[in-house]
Design a protein around this nucleic acid. Structure first.
Lengths: 331, 331
DNA sequence: TGCTTACATGAAAGCACTTACAAGTATAAC
DNA sequence: GTTATACTTGTAAGTGCTTTCATGTAAGCA
């Protein structure tokens, strides 16, 4: 009963595949008797010509593709939730492509847009080359980029640099003088280096305040709870540990918090911790953090995409989402 | 430049059509130099592969579909991570369908399976009707179901009932006599009622121990941190609050923990809390929980699926994953 | 230096159909 | 009883693309 082909039908009806094809495409060319026989076989086998099915679906793919590095990072998940919710009652499905190695990334966008069928593309924190851009534009694939801006696309970005400053200014205003930082090792090329940018802004603000960011107080590792914890242990076991640590993500901050407890440090008395993202759980562990509107970014990406999909004449928009310090119990 | 084909591109780039195809579909397999040459030719000719022809020639769709209710629940995300990782270096992409209402659930399976847009299907915690089963079987769509078992499919399940017992036995052994439960309101039809089953097992074990589960000590609500918190507040503000609470998910347990802190209750002295899932963060908040192997379940689902995809003659497998109590600081 | 291994590539065999072409049969016309 | 004509139908040659297989070449190693 599986998916049958012209061959199956032909065999069952005792005719050639050409006849089957004719019955489907120009029935008047085939004798009534034969035609009936073939139609019967078609019904019995539940035969659906593939091309036709494809053609029917061709109007619109009804799919929007989302490319994200490490889509299981909480921050990406939260963005995805925004995308999924926005798409929930629309005739579009979402395909998530997980970009997890550099080799793949380079060509992924290219080959995807050429090979796969979808109506729109959402790029999450993926840097791209000019060639990629041109290819997407040439194939008129409507694209929205989150975190990375480009004049050819609609985009949604946050000012990571300003986010870093925000954290530093906040901590300095609280009286801290020895500041630390826990961030991502940059995976060159793979994902957009938000952590680096946050660090740059952080450092700039520290300098502006006449302070210095000791390289020993900076620890970088791949983003994870475990690494956040290790980084914190490393920072705090120095002769002159920082009195406040800014983490490039809430995940790392959570790991840092764990480490602080393990070291019997009182947070925020002994050391203050600031995260970044304001994930769901941040509120629940009382984490002070820089809020970026993750779910909203996903929702907005869909909105921008669909708006252009409906009417290509609409202008490309580059939206910048605001950041804010959410003060809780870790500072 | 009308419609160019692989042949045109191949000719212009001085390579074979096979190489052109490879550049489009798996660029990493072709030498950078050659690739550049071909891409140049592609750009110059404005070549766009005909999806229809590709679909015809491609034996498999190269897609596996994952249907999940509320895919942004942490437990589903963790399963998805297992799926994504298992698929990472295989020629399959993953499409996540978020099922958020019953109507959609049925239509997905129907329409998607009819157009045969994917090779395999993973159903996460989705109950299905016999009609659906038949449709899938008729269209010979290889399916693996997680959490729900059916003789026609491979499946991966856990014994929720036993999980509930495990939690109760553990708490009773710790000396608790007034037990509480925080679980999901069942969304009839939409998702598999794991929470209910855990409650049933929990209650049974409590009875077996000669105790009683007071209905006032049970609070059900849609799964979320907020609701977990509210439920805990409700339970603990009674005249006879429980001394231990089992939550049907770690998310709810985290909310409950938050509530306990807000009420200045010492955990575990005043009230013990046990979760379910053992999510990433459980270890970090010291949550005692019933561990189920989420990521592994995703990995395994892919394994079962691919095994049957390679060779349909292989038997259908119904795997039961074990559960265990992970004792931490909340009990 | 000879031998194994990995990589890059082209030839060729599909895929699921469509369609031009030719052949066979029945009917009509002489 | 031929021959012309209209119908049917099967054969086989495309269609544009993917992928296996085999071969040639470059690199690794003792």
């Amino acid at each position: 009963m599986a998916h049958s082909t012209v061959y199956d039908v032909a065999h069952k009806a005792g005719v050639s595949i050409a006849t089957v094809s004719r019955v489907v495409n120009s029935p008047e060319k085939v004798n009534l008797e034969t035609r009936t026989k073939v139609l019967q076989a078609i019904d019995q086998l539940g035969y659906v010509p593939k091309a036709e099915a494809a053609a029917r679906a061709r109007k619109s793919a009804g799919r929007i593709a989302v490319l994200a590095p490490f889509f299981t990072y909480p921050s990406f998940v939260q963005r995805l939730r925004g995308v999924a919710n926005a798409l929930a009652h629309l005739p579009y499905e979402m395909t998530v492509y997980n970009v997890d190695n550099t080799a793949r990334r380079d060509s992924y966008v290219t080959s995807l847009s050429l090979t796969r069928r979808f109506d729109g593309l959402i790029l999450m924190a993926l840097p791209f080359t000019q060639v990629t851009v041109e290819r997407l534009v040439n194939n008129s694939i409507e694209t929205v980029s989150i975190e990375v801006t480009h004049p050819s696309f609609s985009s949604i970005e946050i000012d990571d640099h300003a986010g870093g400053r925000l954290a530093a200014d906040f901590l300095i205003r609280k009286g801290h003088k020895r500041l630390g930082f826990i961030g991502d090792t940059d995976l060159p090329d793979l994902a957009f280096p938000t952590s680096d940018r946050r660090l740059t802004g952080y450092r700039a603000a520290v300098r502006d305040a006449g302070l210095e960011l000791d390289p020993l107080n900076i620890s970088l590792a791949a983003q994870s709870l475990q690494n956040g914890r290790h980084s914190m242990h490393a920072l705090m076991s120095q002769p002159h540990p920082p009195t406040a640590v800014f983490c490039a993500s809430d995940t790392q901050a959570m790991g840092a918090l764990k480490a602080a407890h393990e070291l019997y440090l009182n947070v925020p008395r002994d050391v203050a911790i600031v995260g970044f993202d304001d994930l769901d759980f941040a509120d629940y562990i009382g984490l002070t953090t820089i809020r970026q509107h993750l779910e909203e970014s996903g929702r907005l990406a869909v909105e921008l995409l669909l708006s252009r999909l409906e009417n290509r004449a609409r202008p490309i928009k580059n939206v910048r989402l605001t950041l804010e310090v959410i003060e809780r119990e870790t500072t």
